[in-house]
């Protein structure tokens, strides 16, 4: 692919994903907005993908150090974000306690 084709292709993905995101998020009730933010926060930990490459490519000390810090920060979000989302969602109950 030429560079411009890559740009257009990536833009397609971005715009369509943003559209799907809009449709999905509008359907999330106010009740669940805090778990939603915690969950999207965990999902944004996908930057882990880039961080791991930086930490593991052995491109020199600077890259490895920055990559390792990035992996740590992203993992905090992934692990912490998903755990805390689940902790919250576990508490939501429809009817009175039996």
């Amino acid at each position: 692919m030429s560079l411009i084709e890559v740009v257009i292709f990536s833009l397609y993905i971005f715009v369509l994903a943003a559209f799907v995101g809009y449709q999905l998020i509008t359907r999330v009730p106010n009740l669940l907005h805090t778990p939603l933010m915690a969950a999207t926060n965990a999902i944004s930990g996908i930057s882990l993908v880039g961080s791991m490459v930086a930490a593991g490519t052995e491109h020199g000390t600077v890259t490895t150090v920055l990559g390792t810090i990035a992996v740590t920060a992203a993992t905090i979000n992934v692990v912490g974000g998903f755990m805390i989302t689940d902790r919250m969602l576990k508490m939501f109950r429809k009817g009175p306690q039996k």
Binding site: S10, I13, F14, V15, A17, A18, V20, G21, Y22, L24, I25, T26, H33, L36, M37, T40, N41, I43, S44, I46, S47, V49, G50
Partner: peptide, 17 residues
């Protein structure tokens, strides 16, 4: 692409909220 998709979902969600 997975980064683009997650970024778009997350960016859209935050903006919409």
């Amino acid at each position: 692409n997975v980064l683009i998709i997650c970024g778009a979902l997350d960016g859209g969600s935050g903006f919409l909220l």
